[in-house]
Computed example of a mutant assay.
Amino acid sequence: MGRKNKRRRYRLTLEYDGTNFSGWQKQMDARTVQGDVLKGAVRVFGEVPMDLQGCGRTDAGVHALEYVAHLEVVADIGPHEVARKLNQTLPKDIAVKSVEAAGLRFHARHNCIARSYIYQLRTEKSAFGKRYDWWVQAELDLPAMQHAGSLMTGMHDFAAFAEKKELKKSTKVLIHKIEVFTEKEILKIRVVGSHFLWHMVRRMVGIMVEVGCHRLTKENIQNILEGHSDVLPAHHTAPGAGLFFEKAFYDSEGLAEFLKE
């Protein structure tokens, strides 16, 4: 007699091009990453009870380098085979980088202690950049941008960056690190935080660019964080195309090592 299938939970690491998605979270009337992965899982496992949860929401157009999700399903398939079969059935703009066996207590979002994003922008036009970076048509003061980032590092109330519906809950966020650096002709801004509000990273980037263009000052940022500024971060939201979910962290040691780099 064959072995009876039981509930299994897999930890998935995904890479996706978010250009043609309305974000991660499943929606009834839009294409989403969660929706497409669930459809792929149905083709792999059949119509069985399953649950797919991600480590956080990503906005429409936002990409991911190492996005973590967990898939719970009644099955008896090894992780390597799950990865192979999912990659065969998923669309070309989603790739499964790895699949690991996880305990039933592992939760991609609840167990995640920090997340990092990278935002890419250019000051020179590129024919290939539209999907993956923001073309800022100005000279940027990078030291000023880095200093602006340092002002937003630490525990702050980011209510000014939040949507109205988020104000009912705590808007305090711990920002572990913000760095500004260049790789070839691309300027990158890395933001590492405990979690993020809706559009928060894109609004932080937009404010930093305004500082880099000398249209805002460090005093403006301090006033925004203290809640008495007429500058609205929502008016400076950077485009979604330049934003990449970089990494999810599940242990303090791994986070500490990453922050040292």
Score class of each variant (00 low, 15 high):
residue 79 P to Q: 12
residue 81 E to A: 15
residue 82 V to L: 14
residue 84 R to M: 11
residue 84 R to T: 11
residue 85 K to R: 13
residue 86 L to G: 11
residue 87 N to V: 03
residue 88 Q to I: 01
residue 89 T to S: 13
residue 91 P to K: 02
residue 92 K to Y: 06
residue 92 K to S: 11
residue 93 D to W: 06
residue 94 I to C: 14
residue 95 A to I: 08
residue 95 A to F: 07
residue 96 V to T: 12
residue 97 K to E: 12
residue 97 K to V: 12
residue 98 S to K: 09
residue 98 S to C: 13
residue 98 S to T: 12
residue 99 V to A: 15
residue 99 V to L: 13
residue 101 A to F: 05
residue 102 A to N: 09
residue 102 A to M: 13
residue 103 G to M: 06
residue 103 G to W: 01
residue 104 L to F: 00
residue 104 L to C: 08
residue 106 F to E: 12
residue 107 H to D: 15
residue 108 A to N: 07
residue 108 A to D: 10
residue 109 R to E: 14
residue 109 R to W: 05
residue 110 H to F: 14
residue 110 H to E: 15
residue 111 N to I: 02
residue 112 C to L: 10
residue 113 I to T: 06
residue 113 I to G: 05
residue 113 I to S: 07
residue 113 I to V: 10
residue 115 R to L: 02
residue 115 R to Q: 10
residue 117 Y to R: 06
residue 118 I to S: 04
residue 120 Q to N: 15
residue 120 Q to L: 10
residue 122 R to T: 14
residue 122 R to W: 00
residue 122 R to C: 14
residue 124 E to W: 01
residue 124 E to T: 13
residue 125 K to I: 03
residue 126 S to V: 02
residue 126 S to L: 12
residue 127 A to C: 12
residue 128 F to H: 03
residue 130 K to L: 14
residue 131 R to Q: 14
residue 133 D to M: 08
residue 133 D to W: 04
residue 135 W to L: 15
residue 135 W to T: 06
residue 135 W to V: 03
residue 136 V to I: 15
residue 139 E to Y: 04
residue 140 L to W: 04
residue 141 D to M: 08
residue 141 D to V: 03
residue 141 D to C: 08
residue 142 L to E: 13
residue 143 P to G: 14
residue 143 P to H: 10
residue 145 M to N: 09
residue 146 Q to L: 11
residue 147 H to M: 04
residue 147 H to A: 15
residue 149 G to H: 01
residue 150 S to A: 09
residue 150 S to V: 01
residue 150 S to M: 08
residue 151 L to G: 05
residue 152 M to P: 05
residue 153 T to Q: 15
residue 156 H to R: 02
residue 157 D to E: 11
residue 157 D to Y: 01
residue 157 D to L: 04
residue 157 D to T: 00
residue 158 F to K: 01
residue 159 A to Q: 07
residue 159 A to V: 08
residue 160 A to I: 06
residue 161 F to Q: 06
residue 161 F to V: 02
residue 163 E to W: 00
residue 164 K to I: 06
residue 164 K to Q: 11
residue 165 K to Y: 09
residue 166 E to C: 02
residue 167 L to K: 09
residue 168 K to F: 09
residue 168 K to D: 15
residue 168 K to Y: 07
residue 169 K to C: 12
residue 169 K to H: 12
residue 171 T to L: 06
residue 171 T to M: 04
residue 172 K to N: 11
residue 173 V to G: 11
residue 173 V to D: 10
residue 173 V to W: 00
residue 174 L to C: 14
residue 176 H to E: 10
residue 176 H to G: 10
residue 176 H to Q: 09
residue 177 K to I: 00
residue 178 I to Y: 01
residue 179 E to D: 13
residue 179 E to P: 01
residue 182 T to V: 11
residue 184 K to F: 04
residue 184 K to N: 11
residue 185 E to L: 09
residue 186 I to K: 07
residue 186 I to G: 06
residue 189 I to K: 03
residue 189 I to R: 01
residue 190 R to Y: 06
residue 190 R to C: 14
residue 191 V to C: 09
residue 192 V to Y: 02
residue 192 V to P: 02
residue 192 V to K: 02
residue 193 G to I: 07
residue 194 S to L: 05
residue 195 H to I: 02
residue 196 F to G: 09
residue 196 F to V: 07
residue 196 F to N: 02
residue 196 F to E: 05
residue 197 L to S: 10
residue 199 H to S: 12
residue 199 H to W: 03
residue 201 V to C: 03
residue 201 V to D: 08
residue 201 V to A: 07
residue 202 R to L: 07
residue 203 R to N: 03
residue 203 R to E: 12
